[in-house]
Design a binder for these strands. Structure first.
Lengths: 187, 187
DNA sequence: CTTGCCTATGAAACGAGTTGCATAGAGGAT
DNA sequence: ATCCTCTATGCAACTCGTTTCATAGGCAAG
């Protein structure tokens, strides 16, 4: 489990409240790591108890008070140790792959409609990534910070883009295969 | 949650015991869906109670008795209904992406070693997929079954191959980026 | 003026997945 | 002789993630 680490990285990139973190996990970070606000609040509280992060109460007008979090020295050490640990293999769980193999025992045309919708989602996600890349990394402001923070964010985004392109090409392959089978078994 | 559906598909492709299923989930099916024997036994028992699968006790000599499962009519109906449901977006959880962004606040060279090991794992996985493709789908026995079971298994495998190729190319990109940053910040 | 959304945090219950342990006989290795 | 591995199933405890609900003020739309 590494939600703690994802929170540490996000807070190092930019400190903020649990609520702000939850929104980031719905956006940029959420493309490769999902978390609900419940998880974030709970883990954040534990991390504060362990001294990984330090909270500062910020009174606000018109809005509820918020707790502003920043990474403490202990949290920094934890992250550094984690970077030295081996990368764990992702635990795969692809609904779609199961459905495709299941289509042999059901109605392939039913699946085709769902795959087309799914393809649309990934097509939009790719467009969104590309727009983000243009905005944040390929524009006139592509500064070479010494820490390489932006450069590393960019290479992760390029990974997302490569993933979406690969997925779209594969979904076309899937659709062609389903069509072929449907044409054969349909009559 | 769709472990039930993964089990149904696997049992339709070939009926068998919980133990056999667990081994399949460590092999072919495990490439896109992981499950331990604990989960499988528990879910299998529930599915039997719900009438989705039917069990048959098979006494064996020298080995413990086993329960041989096959999909019942109700299970077939459940699977068919599931195929009509929309495909849920995968919940992403990429340790590596978090680590890469974390490398901006730690030691990039520590991460490089881990990425190189990780690349090795994916390289081996690709080789394994390609060997499996050659063995099961590209050999002399590539029969056109009317139900398209093998064809659908093949397109899922092609997805795995495409994923590994994309990942390897991206990992090279990641390594080049880490090298660049390390060279810049190292001195 | 009431309904609904946004900010901001949190409790409680539930469900799914993981880990450790237990049983038990057959067979191979040291 | 002893240890390890494989087949085959299962219980119990635990962790992690999801869902539902609650509070509470401000703001905008109808």
């Amino acid at each position: 489990m590494a939600l703690e680490h994802a929170i540490l990285v996000s807070l190092l990139e930019k400190p903020g409240s649990g609520y702000e973190l939850a929104r980031r996990f719905d956006r940029s970070i959420g493309y490769f790591w999902t978390a609900t606000h419940q998880q974030i609040y709970r883990v954040l509280k534990r991390m504060e108890g362990d001294g990984w992060v330090a909270a500062r109460e910020v009174p606000q007008q018109g809005k509820p008070d918020k707790k502003h979090y920043a990474v403490a020295a202990a949290g920094h050490a934890v992250l550094d140790a984690w970077l030295h640990e081996p990368i764990e293999p992702e635990s795969v769980r692809h609904d779609l792959a199961v459905k495709i193999r299941g289509a042999a025992f059901g109605d392939p045309s039913a699946l085709m409609r769902q795959v087309e919708r799914y393809r649309q989602v990934h097509s939009e996600r790719l467009a969104h990534y590309l727009a983000g890349e243009l905005r944040d990394f390929t524009g006139p402001d592509a500064p070479a910070e010494p820490d390489g923070m932006g450069e590393l964010q960019h290479v992760v985004l390029r990974g997302g883009i490569a993933y979406e392109r690969m997925t779209l090409a594969w979904l076309d392959d899937v659709l062609a295969t389903l069509h072929r089978i449907h044409a054969r078994t349909g009559h």
